[in-house]
Design a protein around this nucleic acid. Structure first.
Length: 588
RNA sequence: GGGGUCGUAGCUCAGCAUGGUUAGAGCGCCAGUCUGUCACACUGGAGGUCGCGGGUUCGAGCCCCGUCGGCCCCGCCA
């Protein structure tokens, strides 16, 4: 199809272009027919330009314009002129194009919703008609920023000597950790590839191969349930470096964030980022990804509550549990119902209940006050810095659970009291370090790696591997911004004997080790340099930089929370023939 | 695997607690009027499987059960 190609975009014409004859290509955004004068807003990715037709100039054209409907694709030729009534809301608002000639390149059905940032559309409809949703300027904006982010990343790592290498998508299934998406092999019936949860082992192999500095912006796949910040396929900035320790990875990462924040937001962020040990993050904020934009810290009460004769406390302490609390400032006016809601939240996180104390007019008011002596109450008041008008929440539970519950309450209180709103626009980064190497999995009755099994233990903790694995800390680090875990990495095991020892601690049999990770151990035996790296969640990074808490806003074609793609309708059943070729029988 | 919440016109929603003529609103759409609008305005009009299936009832958009789908969360996410 031959058509006049644009000589300008819909976003660029200004007063200085007055008198120019231009051709625009775009979509009919809206038509305002005043009876005589007709205004047409033409839209493309760059903006909106107003076209104007007046009947006394060209009646024929005026009649033809009435064929246009919204979202028709057109070319339009005309002269740029100064507007009689400028529109300050548009960058092109000082000019308009006096339409001389136009053609319809394609018609359009009436869209199910208006292509406008003003109109509210349910997410379901947005995803079903994603091709229309993605036409909306506010939706496009995030992808334009996402693209800028790609460019900054590529530039930053190129300038720092990193090599981009592509790693396979058809990989080996190693069902430690998340569930794998499996891809059946036709040639080897009954066998499966797995889509990578991360290119972890490939990048370590690249280090052993001497690539020294690797980076990749890469899709990763995890077959787990979705959340507002979790998709089954997502993008990581994956990097690995040789002859480094934790500080080198941290420096490189901080440098990247510095460039991104400066170039995208014009904000100079301070480095180095503060650091918290895992145990400090948990005990102070109740989270391994604390939002440090506000204080509202958790206080540990256990020591001051020994021997209170209050059954709940005594039993907790006797069984090695922890008692801790959170001061919800100025919340003493919370009703029974509001406190019940907080209690329900505590239960959602596995808590048995929530104790509380209010201070009003200098008096402590609490359902547990009658069980506690003055010394205990004073201890709580003092540690919790409880003042008039405060509501103090208390939880007694196992170490991590106790603090996690209070961490959830901390977030909730911040939300309810408007603290969260006040810190909007602030960015607080931090590193969480010294994670425990292992957790005990009650269901599987064995240790599992908290980060992943390729992580190196802290040198000073290596001797504990044989004695008390749960005490072993790892050379792992997470980078957190505003309470979002935005990246995580570690220094890896580069000595085969330590790697093997860790596999054994995870109760992998010799055969498992050999079948699943034999190639890694083999590679490690041929001169592996000390190495480590990090994976940064690109989608979450874009979320932060474009100020949204919905990951679907930054992914062009995302899945719904049940893992469906509503536009193309996927997943689907496949033809019997395809299954036969793969040697697969469906048994639902 | 579990919990919460929503599903009514093309879109966004009200109606449901306490079942009862012909299910409403705004926007959009269609027709008309209008020569400076820009969320144009005004007049008129069309438009409904109340997600789907079953049950209770004389009678169900409303109550009950199931199911499908959206969103949020717990578990899960090395």
């Amino acid at each position: 199809m031959n058509f006049p190609k644009r000589t300008a975009t819909c976003g660029e014409l200004r007063l200085s272009d007055e008198g120019r004859v231009v051709v625009l290509n775009g979509w009919v955004h809206s038509i305002r027919d005043m009876g005589g004068l007709i205004f047409i807003d033409l839209r493309d990715r760059y903006g909106i330009t107003q076209l104007v037709v007046s009947p006394d100039v060209n009646q024929e054209l005026s009649a033809k314009v009435k064929e246009l409907k919204q979202e028709f694709v057109v070319w339009a030729k005309g002269k740029v002129r100064k507007r009689e009534n400028p529109n300050p809301k548009l960058p092109t608002g000082l000019i308009e194009v006096e339409l001389e000639e136009f053609g319809i390149l394609n018609k359009a059905d009436l869209p199910p919703f208006e292509i406008s940032d003003i109109v509210d559309v349910s997410e379901e409809n947005r995803l079903r008609y994603r091709f229309l949703d993605l036409r909306r300027p506010s939706v496009q904006r995030r992808f334009i920023i996402r693209n800028q982010i790609y460019q900054i990343i590529h530039k930053y790592f190129y300038e720092n000597g990193f090599i981009e290498v592509e790693t396979p998508f058809l990989t080996k299934s190693t069902p430690e950790g998340a569930r794998d998406f499996l891809v059946p092999s036709r040639i080897h019936k009954g066998k499966f590839y797995a889509l990578p949860q991360s290119p972890q082992l490939y990048k370590q192999i690249l280090m052993i191969s001497g690539f020294d500095r690797y980076v990749q912006i890469v899709k990763c796949f995890r077959d787990e349930d979705l959340r507002s910040d979790r998709q089954p396929e997502f993008t990581q900035i994956d990097l690995e470096m040789s002859f480094v320790d934790r500080e080198d990875i941290i420096n490189v990462t901080e440098g990247l964030f510095k460039s991104l924040w400066k170039e995208i937001l014009g904000i100079e962020i301070n480095t180095p980022f503060p650091r918290l040990s895992f145990s400090e993050a948990i005990t102070r904020y109740g989270s391994d990804k604390p939002d440090t934009r506000y204080d509202l810290e958790i206080v540990t009460l256990t020591d001051g509550l020994v021997g209170t004769n209050f059954r709940v406390f005594d039993e907790a302490i006797a069984s090695g549990k922890v008692i801790a609390g959170l001061n919800a400032k100025y919340c003493a006016n919370y009703s029974r119902k509001q406190i019940d809601e907080l209690s329900e939240l505590a239960q959602k996180y596995g808590g048995k209940g929530l104790l509380w104390m209010k201070k009003i007019d200098g008096e402590i008011n609490s359902p547990i006050a009658k069980f506690l002596n003055e010394k205990a109450i004073n201890s709580i008041q003092e540690k919790g810095k409880i003042e008039n008008g405060d509501l103090f929440l208390i939880v007694a539970d196992e170490w991590e659970k106790c603090y996690t519950i209070l961490g959830a309450l901390r977030k909730e209180i911040a939300k309810r009291t408007g603290i969260l709103e006040k810190v909007n626009g602030k960015y607080e980064f931090l590193w969480v370090v010294d994670f425990p190497m292992f957790e005990f999995d009650k269901e599987e009755n064995r240790f599992v790696a908290k980060h992943h099994p390729f992580t190196s233990p802290l040198d000073e903790d290596i001797h504990l591997l044989d004695v008390d694995p749960l005490k072993v800390r790892a050379k792992a680090y997470d980078v957190v911004v505003n309470g979002e875990e935005i990246g995580g990495g570690s220094i890896r095991n580069f000595k085969p004997e330590i790697q093997e020892k860790i596999f054994r601690l995870l109760q992998l049999s010799d055969e498992d080790i050999n079948v699943k990770f034999g190639f890694l151990l083999e590679a490690l035996r041929y001169g592996a340099p000390p190495h480590g790296g990090i994976a940064i969640g690109l989608d979450r990074l874009v979320m932060t930089l474009t100020d949204t808490d919905n990951i679907r806003d930054v992914i062009a074609f995302p899945k719904t929370t049940s893992g469906l793609a509503l536009m193309e309708n996927c997943p689907t059943f496949v033809e019997e023939k395809q299954l036969r070729e793969l040697g697969i029988k469906i048994d639902i």
